[in-house]
Design a protein around this nucleic acid. Structure first.
Lengths: 262, 262
DNA sequence: GCTCTGCTATGATTTAGATCAACCGGACGA
DNA sequence: TCGTCCGGTTGATCTAAATCATAGCAGAGC
């Protein structure tokens, strides 16, 4: 039970953390508008707010609080009452579920623009923890759901997001149930490449905001196996490891083949 | 590439297959109304149609076709153009994804009332196959999505369904990534118990419409391990196996403990 | 009835990855 | 500057589950 949401509450705007996956779309140095800080939000067009007009966004903003969280902080914990929903504006977050004896499965890594906390239950189904410095918009769930009733286009957007997450979850089940360690790590890297490409970032060097332990818990492996498999991919000439937190992609095609089991 | 949708098209109503998990809510022998066969639908109140009034349901019905499928038939295949969405009214269906070399992961088993085929992509992300005789309502996806725009309460319902599926998917990731064979099988059985209870069925004997191979592909194990693990649970006195397709639950608490890793 | 076939079960052996155990190197504080 | 710590890597060994092999058994078809 670590410090839950010991966060600095900031009053407006978004900002960069200066560390982690710093490659976001370029044109984001907009004017900061006190009444509508979302207008300057760098992830606005790729997130849940995307289908809203300025007035609707203002209403959404009225119920939101922007939080700034340190690395390795819990955003919320599995089983806790689900009182808020969140939207990440910068940094990276892990979602995980654990067994009583501590075995943990990370079910996903979230990046700027990603939405979390939605549930049709009273409690959160998983734990969310920051990996890096994180900026996050927080909405009281009840108010958010009330607003949702009046904003069908946002509900539509959420359904799109949920379907995509479901497809990703199914890919991950295939990975966890049937892939070898090398295939798992290759799939993971390919996923990061694609994500980074989708957000307009470089595709030659990818940044790992998580440690080996998080990668292991995401891939259903141990730290040692992840480490050995990185070495194996390096020796095979598919990647290079300038340091432990970044991967230079040398053979993207090679990785993709491996990821899909060839 | 097996026979895709070699199905008998029936014009109205729902019916029981007579085999498989036949325990549905009791009061379903209603009058069959030619103009509104959904009124007699036994799964109406637990499915995607639930929030619709009679008129809306009639409009939905107007774009639907009821299909009757044999066991072991493909409903649609991963990668095929996603032209329809479906709603199961009787029988059981498996959803799966496969690697090029044939390794398969079953991502879920669907029962009456379950909805499938929704995607925000041009192609299906997974294969759907019948396990038993199946009755299914089919809707042209494009028309269905058009209707959805005018029926926000159905979109809301779909979002609820999708969130629940996402939570189930996360549980399954924990299972596949971190649980032992015994824990996996116990979790699987507990899931079946809960599902059967939710649909008002008996909770002492559960029916397995799928074979050992499907269970193995669902749990990320082999047929042999599933078989041995059934034997182990039997020897531990948690279950009995009257035949290969049913399980008598003796120690439900024991199973639940095992399922959650205790 | 009999044989064939497909599923399930179980025994023997192998193996991918886990576990146990050093070790290495950079960051950080004294 | 030096020790300590922490994350990552690498080596040695172990083990849960996979694989390989065989056998039982029930239903389908003749």
């Amino acid at each position: 039970m670590r410090d839950r949401e010991r966060a600095v509450t900031v009053n407006s705007g978004t900002f960069r953390t200066g560390q982690g996956q710093g490659t976001l779309p370029k044109a984001t140095r907009r004017e900061l508008d006190k009444d509508n800080p979302c207008a300057a939000c760098s992830v606005r067009e790729m997130t849940v707010c995307a289908p809203l007009d300025d007035e609707e966004q203002r209403r959404l903003r009225a119920i939101s609080t922007t939080l700034k969280l340190e690395p390795r902080r819990m955003v919320f914990e599995e089983g806790a009452p689900a009182e808020y929903v969140y939207n990440i504006t910068s940094g990276a977050v892990s979602l995980s579920k654990s067994l009583a004896d501590g075995r943990r499965q990370i079910t996903g890594f979230l990046y700027p623009g990603d939405f979390l906390g939605l549930t049709h239950n009273v409690a959160y189904a998983y734990t969310a923890e920051t990996l890096t410095h994180v900026c996050i918009c927080r909405f009281p769930r009840k108010k958010f759901e009330e607003m949702l009733l009046a904003l069908p286009q946002m509900e539509h957007r959420l359904l799109t997001i949920a379907s995509n997450e479901l497809a990703t979850a199914q890919d991950q089940m295939l990975l966890l149930g049937r892939k070898t360690a090398s295939e798992r790590l290759a799939s993971f890297l390919v996923g990061l490449i694609d994500r980074q490409a989708a957000r307009g970032g470089a595709i030659d060097v990818i940044d790992l905001p998580m440690g080996r332990g998080e990668i292991a818990d995401y891939l259903g492996l141990t730290i040692e196996t992840v480490s050995r498999t990185f070495t194996k991919l390096k020796q095979a000439g598919a990647i290079a490891l300038p340091d432990a937190n970044s991967v230079r992609i040398i053979g993207a095609g090679r990785l993709r083949d491996l990821a899909s089991g060839n």
